[in-house]
Design a protein around this nucleic acid. Structure first.
Lengths: 132, 132
DNA sequence: ATGCACCTTGTAGTAACTACAAGGTCAAGC
DNA sequence: GCTTGACCTTGTAGTTACTACAAGGTGCAT
């Protein structure tokens, strides 16, 4: 598959795909005899992963770490464990925040259905005590 | 509370707080007689909201919309409903992605505990079919 | 043989910060 | 009373993660 089709399928612009390749987050694919990048389903999956992880607010550095978990098959369990645990913590915090937001949005929609506007506590949904 | 303390409490730099004020996402607070910005708990909550929403990958534009839901008390239920529903959809998609990621990270940690490295399917966790 | 998708390198724009400089005010501590 | 640190302003410039476009070239289908 060429870059244009991969771009259409994943919703990532061709230029962004080449950018990811330059950044080393997406390996340089084989080339056709015409020097076109030739992508397969593995690259498609990896690109979808990157795009979704970015959408979830993970930085490129963090995504690189996550991808390393995937790439370094011959890695020590201790290393994998520590990194996976740290990512798991971040993921769980994000889930908790999003669930609070979901609850509040659901509450507002329900109130609207009964035509009782109600007060909006959407800020409170995410405004728990701060910790970086 | 002055800007420095708010910055310490929320983990948002003073310069970023002023930036949010310039951008109109955080209202200009009252000033002390010394012309210092004077923040209260409401601003703290709003700032925590903004910071967390950014961390979850919401754009400033999207955050502005969410805050509008909170600010415009005298808004039509139809308008609130449509906007809340659209945000709810995005939130639910994000939760689903994060839950897949959580499951896979948990699986890797569990495998490591038994010293059976196992294969990493972390990419598959987020690489479902694409839709922008 | 025309047009479109691809190739390269390079520059520049965007969003959302982040940093720092210059020049000034305010108030607490020595 | 004077220094020090936190604040004020305006302004410029750097960072990350793209996004866009230009110039000049290749491959290939119609």
């Amino acid at each position: 598959m060429r870059i244009g089709q991969l771009a259409r399928i994943t919703g990532v612009k061709s230029e962004t795909i080449r950018f990811y390749e330059r950044e080393g987050i997406l390996a340089a694919p084989p080339r056709t005899q015409a020097n076109y990048r030739d992508y397969g389903p593995a690259e498609e999956a990896r690109l979808n992963f990157i795009r979704r992880a970015r959408d979830l607010g993970f930085s490129m550095a963090r995504i690189r770490e996550l991808l390393d978990l995937s790439d370094d098959a011959d890695r020590s369990c201790a290393g994998i464990d520590a990194l996976a645990r740290s990512h798991l913590g971040e993921v769980e915090r994000k889930i908790a925040s999003l669930e609070a937001l979901r609850t509040e949005l659901g509450r507002m929609i329900a109130a609207c259905e009964q035509d009782t506007v109600g007060d909006c506590r959407i800020i409170d949904a995410l405004a728990g005590t701060a910790e970086p």
